[in-house]
């Protein structure tokens, strides 16, 4: 049931924000008279999301390849221990600037089901670029059993599936904190400033130095969070660069066409006036 926490997101946050002022006021009054009550995390407001200046923002935005590659490294070493990315193929990784050989090597580092042998026994083979990302667990039950009952959601389109998108993911990854005094946490849950209800089953996944970058970038928590969110945003929107570039051309053409059409219209109508 704790897996619910992963999915029931946006509106609970809005409701908390809407009801909080009243709750805060009544809390203040109670505090003056009686000793501190146990505070429910649901009464603590969720602050507005931070606005990160992403490389992919705006109509001309592109994915910072180096950041996305570092993000993939984090996915490989940290996220993929619990989170699947079922919609992606290894070949897709060429989209963040990895070479064909690098992709082949990454794919070959995992064993995937390879059909059956001559005796009809299931066999495994090294992965190929045409294989889907290998999931950490064979099924939801196994994932829950390994994660205290919580189900780590698939990360293929996670960026699209959360209100606030990349800013929200960044806020969660950097929003872990000690619970405020007087707050009672459910067992196995972790306090997060930005998570609706503030109790998240996932322990803080990234700390300073969680991964070793090979390109000399310092792996601070902020840097790691930005890198992995850049990767996740690319994973959810691999078409984004092509989409925006096409869009600029299409709209320029349409504006031109509108101008010409309007001029023709004025000309055609001029004999009426």
């Amino acid at each position: 049931m704790r897996g619910l926490k992963f999915l029931s997101l946006t509106v609970a946050a809005a409701a908390v924000a809407a009801t909080f002022p009243a709750a805060a006021q009544s809390g203040d009054k109670a505090e003056a008279k009686a000793p501190v009550h146990e505070i429910s995390t649901a009464d603590i407001p969720v602050p507005p999301l931070p606005h990160v200046d992403w490389s992919f923002n705006g109509p001309f935005g592109t994915f910072d390849r180096a950041s996305a590659q570092r993000g993939f490294l984090i996915y490989q070493q940290v996220c993929s221990n619990c989170h699947s990315m079922d919609q992606l193929y290894y070949r897709n990784l060429e989209g963040i600037g990895l070479s064909e050989d690098q992709v082949k090597a990454i794919a070959a580092s995992v064993q995937v089901p390879g059909g059956v042998n001559d005796q009809g026994q299931p066999i495994e083979r090294p992965g190929r670029p045409s294989d889907h990302f290998k999931a950490p667990f064979p099924n939801e039950e196994a994932a829950r059993a390994a994660n205290g009952g919580a189900y780590p959601p698939d990360q293929s389109v996670l960026e699209l599936a959360r209100e606030g998108g990349p800013d929200y993911l960044y806020a969660i990854l950097t929003g872990y904190a000690d619970p405020p005094p007087g707050v009672k946490m459910m067992s196995g849950m972790n306090y997060n400033t930005y998570f609706p209800g503030h109790q998240i089953a996932m322990p803080q996944p990234l700390q300073e130095g969680s991964v070793q970058y090979t390109d000399g970038v310092k792996p601070t928590l902020d840097q790691e969070a930005k890198d992995v969110v850049t990767f996740l945003t690319w994973a959810a929107n691999p078409e984004m660069e092509e989409r925006k570039q096409t869009g600029v051309r299409v709209i320029l053409f349409l504006v031109f066409l509108t101008g010409v059409t309007y001029a023709v219209k004025r000309r055609v109508w001029s004999d009426l006036h």
Partner: peptide, 21 residues
Amino acid sequence: TIKDSVGICVFFIVLAALVFF
């Protein structure tokens, strides 16, 4: 036909803004 064409062009600009951005 020409007056509708003007509107159709504007319609596609709005649609394209949504679809691409």
